[in-house]
């Protein structure tokens, strides 16, 4: 939607921001009111809110991909990640705060997939904000009941013999999937390996890119 407005240019010649050229909604007015009152009362500042948004925008799946690439190449880190993923990722600069983070590894026999049936809990420190589908009724309802069908809708078909384990997140406990390292990547740098790691592969709704994709 944000890209549908090429014929609506602002006086500066740029497209209006999608959120700025629709009629003001009741809920947007509420957001403005709460924000202004909190600033006036000294609870927060405009700069603090802007800083929080900057930090949010800087948390992307590249964080998670760096974690996965390190787990693939450094056995000590992999062990630390399995022991206490909150601490291991905080040491990389991706602090999850007081929440418990659990890293679950895919193997040839086991595929992990993450859902939050109650709401939208997600490892934001590693992947950013959750996509819309992660918050949808369909994903939340069906992933725990028929994960193979849900995976098929994401284009992932696993052998019948592969065991699928579904992890249901909570406000206090988040999961990151460590996908299996693709074959044919021996000797690759961490950066090249990280380029194979997609957001969906760390939620379990996808697989890493094929090494051929980078050649």
């Amino acid at each position: 939607m944000p890209h549908d407005h090429h014929d609506h240019l602002s006086p500066s010649g740029h497209p209006f921001r999608a959120d700025n050229d629709h009629p003001l909604s009741y809920w947007q007015a509420l957001e403005i009111a709460v924000r202004e009152l909190l600033i006036e009362k000294g609870v927060t500042t405009a700069a603090e809110i802007a800083g929080q948004i900057d930090a949010m925008d800087n948390r992307t799946p590249a964080n998670g991909a760096a974690v996965v690439a390190l787990a693939w190449t450094d056995p000590d880190f992999r062990a630390a990640l399995q022991h206490d993923a909150s601490m291991a990722t905080a040491e990389m600069g991706f602090d999850i705060g007081p929440m418990k983070l659990i890293a679950v590894e895919n193997t040839a026999e086991l595929h992990n997939i993450v859902v939050c049936t109650l709401c939208s809990c997600y490892p934001r420190n590693l992947l950013g904000l959750p996509p819309d589908w992660y918050k949808s009724r369909a994903y939340r309802s069906r992933t725990v009941r028929e994960p193979r069908r849900v995976l098929a809708e994401f284009g992932v078909t696993l052998p019948e013999a592969t065991h699928i384990r579904v992890h249901d997140s909570t406000a206090d406990m988040r999961y990151i999937v460590i996908p299996a390292r693709p074959k044919g990547t021996d000797g690759w740098s961490k950066k090249d390996l990280a380029d194979l790691v997609t957001r969906d592969s760390m939620v379990g709704t996808g697989l890493p890119k094929s090494p051929d994709a980078l050649v």
């Binding site: 859902v115 049936t117 109650l118 819309d132 589908w133 949808s136 009724r137 369909a138 994903y139 939340r140 309802s141 069906r142 992933t143 725990v144 009941r145 849900v150 809708e153 994401f154 249901d168």
Partner: peptide, 11 residues
Amino acid sequence: MGGGAAGAVPL
């Protein structure tokens, strides 16, 4: 919502 019926996942 876990376990309920629902349609295709909106991607």
